[in-house]
């Protein structure tokens, strides 16, 4: 079997490869989105920590 034959998928290339492409997108998306979400959550908590620290310092200074 040569490569061009393999990619042609017996004439069904469009259907087969778009299915696999979509599967790839769904799988990568399911990995990337939660990781981005994680970054966002951590950034948010860090901001909250900094804000609370400033509030805390101010109350001591006074």
């Amino acid at each position: 079997m040569n490569w061009s034959e393999f990619f042609a998928m017996g004439g069904y290339a469009v259907y087969v490869w778009s299915s696999y492409a979509l599967a790839f997108v769904v799988i990568v998306g399911n990995v990337v989105l939660p990781l981005m979400q994680r970054k966002k959550v951590i950034a948010r908590i860090k901001r909250a920590i900094r804000r609370d620290a400033i509030l805390h310092d101010n109350s001591i200074a006074r």
Binding site: I27, N30, V31, P34, L35, Q37, R38, V41, I42, R44, I45, K46, A48, I49
Partner: peptide, 29 residues
């Protein structure tokens, strides 16, 4: 794959919902 992703997503939920708890704060710092 689902088990791996569900763990990651649930961890995000834990962090977000417990964001005002001390252990999360210490961990993030």
């Amino acid at each position: 794959f689902y088990f791996a992703v569900i763990l990651v997503r649930t961890r995000n939920e834990v962090l977000y919902r417990e964001r005002n708890r001390r252990w999360v704060r210490e961990l993030i710092e």
